[in-house]
Simulated assay, not measured.
Amino acid sequence: MSVLVGNDTKLAVAGITGREGSFHTLNNRKYGTNVVGGINPKKAGENVEGIPVFADWATTVAETGANTAMIFVPPPFAAASALEAAAAGVEVVIIITEGIPAHDELKLYNQVKRDYPGTTLVGPNCPGILSPGKANVGIIPASFFKEGNVGVVSRSGTLTYQIGNELAQKGFGNSSIVGIGGDPVPGSSFVDVIALFEADPQTELIVMSGEIGGSAEEEAAEYIAEHVTKPVVGYIAGFTAPAGKQMGHAGAIVSGSAGTAAAKQEALEAKGVRVGRTPTETAEIAMEILGA
């Protein structure tokens, strides 16, 4: 099986007519993802290499049965498009857009959770989701990966690729790879995705790639100890990051002793999660567990 995207995915894309949106949408289709439509109010009735463009999400869902959304529109409009997709009944909304104001993210998260609990938000500022051999929604370079039994969830897109590639080079594949993004208000947390992997029969081991800032990894450690039976391996980026300095992602900032890589490693290891100091070491730990 897979989590969130798979053989039953019907993908529609907001921003399909833009340069980045069209490029990645066509790459997703080339991989085998079922792309059923796109949204641009100013270009309704047109098509992008045979993919029809509609005026709004409600029309798109009614005409195509789209159950998955990819948001590629500019930051000022991305949250509104995601909310419109949720209101139209889309089950999974994946927001690739970077730079959405944190206030918009918070409002979107709370409104979807309150009004559209059947919709799963992933992102913003994320690389998307890949279920090898089934569907690719986003910007993950699918050629790195093959189908297998390791589930990966990560705040960082690049680290997602690196850890997955390390595993692939050693002969292990992935059930699904989920990039949750590095913004302060993610639509889905580590806990949300780890719960899906725990319930997924294809996934036998979970790799969680975190980074400095926030408390998501510590919360995941508590959840894993209480609810997860499968082995989990962790990696935390930012052991050398100075306190008080934002590093890369908007959510990657350490304040005092809170949110440091060392504190996150300690919290995870206290709950039985082995943590690698580098992506290579993390992959080696995963391979050791799988081999056993």
Rank of each mutant, 00 (worst) to 15 (best):
A78E: 07
A88K: 01
F72G: 11
D115W: 01
D104F: 06
I95P: 11
E105F: 02
N149I: 00
Y116T: 01
Y116V: 01
G148I: 00
A82H: 11
A168C: 06
Q162G: 01
H103E: 07
T158M: 11
G123W: 04
A102C: 08
G181F: 06
F144W: 07
A82P: 09
K107V: 15
G89H: 04
P76K: 15
P124N: 09
K146C: 03
M70W: 10
S81E: 12
K170F: 04
K107C: 05
G148H: 12
G128T: 05
K170Y: 02
Y116M: 00
A142N: 02
N174A: 07
F77E: 07
F72P: 14
K146L: 03
H103C: 09
T119F: 00
S175I: 00
G128N: 15
T160P: 14
I129Y: 02
G151Q: 08
I180T: 10
K134E: 11
G99V: 14
G151E: 12
T64Q: 09
D183H: 09
T160A: 09
L106I: 12
T158W: 03
A82C: 11
L159I: 11
G164D: 14
G99W: 04
L83Y: 06
N174P: 04
V122N: 10
K134F: 03
A102T: 14
K113E: 04
G128Q: 14
N136E: 07
I94P: 00
S154Y: 06
A66N: 03
E84D: 11
V93M: 15
K134T: 06
D104G: 01
T120D: 02
G182N: 10
G99N: 05
K113W: 00
A86V: 01
N125K: 07
G118W: 00
T120E: 05
P127G: 06
G148P: 08
M70G: 15
I163Q: 15
G157E: 14
Y116R: 01
V73R: 06
A78H: 04
V137I: 08
F144T: 07
G157S: 10
A69T: 07
I129W: 02
L108P: 00
S154P: 07
V152T: 13
A79G: 08
D104L: 05
I177Y: 03
P186T: 13
A79Y: 02
A85D: 08
G133T: 10
P141F: 05
I95F: 15
E84I: 00
G99P: 05
E147Q: 14
T158V: 05
V153D: 15
P132K: 06
P75H: 12
E147Y: 08
G173N: 05
A78K: 03
K113H: 10
I94H: 01
N174C: 04
A82Q: 13
Y161G: 08
Y116K: 01
A142Y: 13
I180P: 04
A66F: 02
M70H: 13
N149H: 12
A82S: 13
Q162E: 15
A66R: 03
P76N: 12
V150D: 15
P74T: 11
P117A: 12
V93D: 13
I139D: 03
A86Y: 00
T68K: 07
A79W: 02
I94K: 01
L130T: 04
I140K: 06
E147K: 14
N125W: 03
E84S: 15
